[in-house]
Design a protein around this nucleic acid. Structure first.
Length: 439
RNA sequence: GGAGAGGUGGCUGAGUGGCCGAAAGCGCCGCAUUGCUAAUGCGGUGUAUGGGCAAAACCUGUACCUCGGGUUCGAAUCCCGACCUCUCCGCCA
């Protein structure tokens, strides 16, 4: 696939090649922590990297010879000229064959680099799956019901907020239709969230959800995540699973000024996920669905670890503030190595209390990448010394709906089957305070 | 969908085979000058990668004029292909 990758992708790196060269063991150990096997990839890279430099040196020498001769050719006449021409024909052929050899090696190196994962932070706990994630914070008390609480499906259907059977008729599994206050509630919670992050300084952006391949490679969803994305083959376009993709890629191939950093963007978009490989998991209701809407915080900041950590805390606290505003109980977990994606340095998930699960369900995910995505996106800035450096990127959910509606409906339900509307959402619903079955 | 035009540095825009990493202007930086501002003069001002080197500075090789391929001793310049952008017409939320 992809007969016409632009040069940006060709050059796309992931980890700094220098770093792999100098700390191959560290890179391997990092991948091991993520349970991603890369030993042979790294070794192969080191081997090719060595070769590349040797060949490159020789190639440059031939080229230099060529360039010097070119200047003489312009002056010389007759026999002398002819003699030089013949000599240069050989040099030229030599340079060309080196060039071919080299470009084969470079192509292979690129493929390898795209597959070597980012090295996780030492703070990332060891572990295999999400069960090994470490809770670091718990906020709010799960509500104790003095009646038999319903789950969001029962609530949604009895209040006529959702329609699953007809959604299945139209669009198959893992789909839903929101109607009445269900539709309004979704818009309200998205709008409330967007307003909240804009107040924190984020620039709201409504972005394309159907994108080219490059932003997906740049944000490191590809290669590897192809199965998770809906594809429009005729147009070679892909539906994004999150606005992180178009928003983080927004400044790709640019050199920003340090003074304009950090860039804070709030991407709003519909998100599409095939949920391949999740067969049989969370098949009912609004939890795991193919299409949803999300407000996403995206940060592009200086290539500085301390700054990146600060920003990580910042976006995490913004998401927490949104849940606190909704008065939903949640906890924050430090995601373990095995549950971490290839590009991430560290990830905190926020899980919101969902009574029907009898536990917390993931609703937010805050990641930092250092320069991993920025390298792939060729996203740079000029620092105060005039030096060009790669940015760092981060992102975090602000709200994703309708998943969050599960928590709202279930936590706010009343004994009589009605649902109280969270106070912060009421201004977005014409001041209404409850959802009640119509006669 | 039909018909055209075009892709050059931060921007505008020259350049039709070698002396072109690329004129000129704008912008930006430095210096000079001027009560301030403005104006003017001079100089500088891309990125990547390799070498000199322990490193910064600096020097230096190579590559890059959308991308890929071809012709040629030599390509921004000629040929082929792809991608992208724009204009007009049609259709359309």
């Amino acid at each position: 696939m992809g007969s016409s990758w632009p040069s940006r992708e060709r050059k796309a790196l992931m980890l700094d090649p220098k770093r792999i060269r100098e700390d191959a063991d560290g890179v391997k150990a990092g991948a091991r922590k993520k349970r991603i096997p890369v030993e042979t990839l790294v070794d192969r890279f080191l081997e090719l990297d060595e070769k590349r430099r040797a060949l490159g040196f020789e190639r440059d020498e031939q080229k230099a010879k060529q360039n010097r001769a070119g200047k003489d050719m312009a002056r010389l006449q007759g026999e002398e000229r002819e003699k030089l021409r013949k000599a240069m024909a050989e040099v030229s052929a030599r340079a060309k064959s080196l060039e071919n050899e080299l470009s084969a090696i470079e192509t292979e190196i690129q493929v390898l680099l795209l597959r070597i994962p980012n090295v996780p932070d030492p703070e990332v706990p060891e572990g295999e799956t999400d069960r090994d994630n470490v809770e670091i914070l718990r906020v709010g008390e799960p509500r104790k019901f003095d009646f038999q609480p319903k789950d969001h499906i029962q609530l949604g259907e009895s209040l006529d907020l959702v329609d699953f059977p007809r959604a299945a008729k139209l669009a198959g599994s893992r789909t839903y239709i929101l109607k009445n206050e269900g539709a309004l509630l979704e818009l309200a919670v998205l709008h409330y969230t967007l307003d909240a992050v804009v107040k924190k300084g984020f620039t709201p952006m409504i972005v394309p959800t159907l994108v080219r391949r490059e932003p997906l490679v740049g944000t490191a969803y590809f290669p590897g995540g192809e199965e998770q994305a809906y594809t429009c083959e005729k147009d070679e376009l892909f539906l994004v699973g999150t606005s992180e993709v178009p928003v983080t890629a927004f400044h790709s191939d640019e050199i920003l000024d340090e003074a304009e950093l950090p860039k804070l963007y709030a991407g709003y978009s519909t998100c599409y996920r095939r949920e391949a490989g999740a067969a049989g998991k969370d098949t009912k209701g609004l939890y795991r669905i193919h299409q949803f809407n999300k407000v996403e915080q995206v940060v592009i900041c200086r290539g500085d670890e301390a700054e990146s950590r600060r920003m990580h805390q910042f976006i995490l606290s913004n998401a927490e503030a949104i849940l606190q505003g909704l008065q939903l109980p949640y906890r924050v977990v430090n995601v373990c190595g095995g549950d971490l994606g290839a590009p991430q340095i560290q990830k905190f998930d926020i899980e919101t209390w969902m009574p029907s699960r009898g536990g917390y369900g993931e609703t937010h995910s805050a990641s930092r990448f250092y320069d991993y995505q920025a390298r792939r996106l060729n996203l740079r800035y000029r620092d105060s010394n005039g030096k060009v450096r790669f940015c760092h990127t981060l992102n975090n959910t602000a709200i994703a709906s309708p998943r969050i509606l599960i928590a709202i409906l279930e936590n706010y339900q009343q004994a009589d089957g009605s649902v109280t509307i969270p106070e912060v959402l009421r201004p977005y619903l014409g001041g209404r305070s409850e959802i009640r079955r119509k006669k």
